[in-house]
Design a protein around this nucleic acid. Sequence first.
DNA 1: CTGTATCCTGAGCGATACTG
DNA 2: CAGTATCGCTCAGGATACAG
Lengths: 121, 121
Amino acid sequence: MTTLNRPGAGDGRHICGIDAAMEVIGGKWKVLILWALHEHPRRRFGELRRLLPGVTEKVLASHLREMESDGVVRRVSYDEVPPRVEYSLTEDGERLNDALRPLAAWGRGRVSAGQAPGPSS
Amino acid sequence: MTTLNRPGAGDGRHICGIDAAMEVIGGKWKVLILWALHEHPRRRFGELRRLLPGVTEKVLASHLREMESDGVVRRVSYDEVPPRVEYSLTEDGERLNDALRPLAAWGRGRVSAGQAPGPSS
DNA sequence: CTGTATCCTGAGCGATACTG
DNA sequence: CAGTATCGCTCAGGATACAG
């Protein structure tokens, strides 16, 4: 289960529904994992790691586990040698990704307008 | 400036635009502040504090400062005694709130379906 | 190749007291 | 009323080594 430091986390009390979503996407790399798996379906662990420059194995693994238990990521393990595991989005994960589009558009808008935090002071 | 522990934070490198948005809403109470100011425009500091049960003065103040410098919250200080300050959303803040609606709907959907993290294991 | 097992750091947050 | 100032803590995340 995702246990993030958010209001209402753990006790199931969410004020407006966004909290519930924030718990799912609240990890540092989770929205990027969502995005990567949407753009590149059925990705292996190592491929995902390469798609997210800077993420460590430990964090990627734990994020994937949490997203799996949250029902947005599906993990398929092929019993081969060497081992092969493929990750993809569930239907709910795809819906979550769609729900993030307006937010991404909003973010892109202010990036191109130079209002995004970071570059300009 | 918002300095969250996110990929690309600080250097202005965002992969898909969601990162930029996540930096703005990444604080523990920020989406709730957004929501509260949308539902109850022109709120005073103390009122806001009462609208967000559990938030401390320090965190509320710092979040409001960051959101102000991110251009989503407007702070209007009336030069009176006792002091009066009113917070409201900027146009961009309202747009951000709109962009969060699909996400809230997604979260509500899984809350009512019992899939949200927290209540069920 | 696909992950655990440890250890560690620090940002983010909370509690409390205090100020104009 | 509307905040700062300080202190402390927790836990998400990073580094590295090891395992099946």
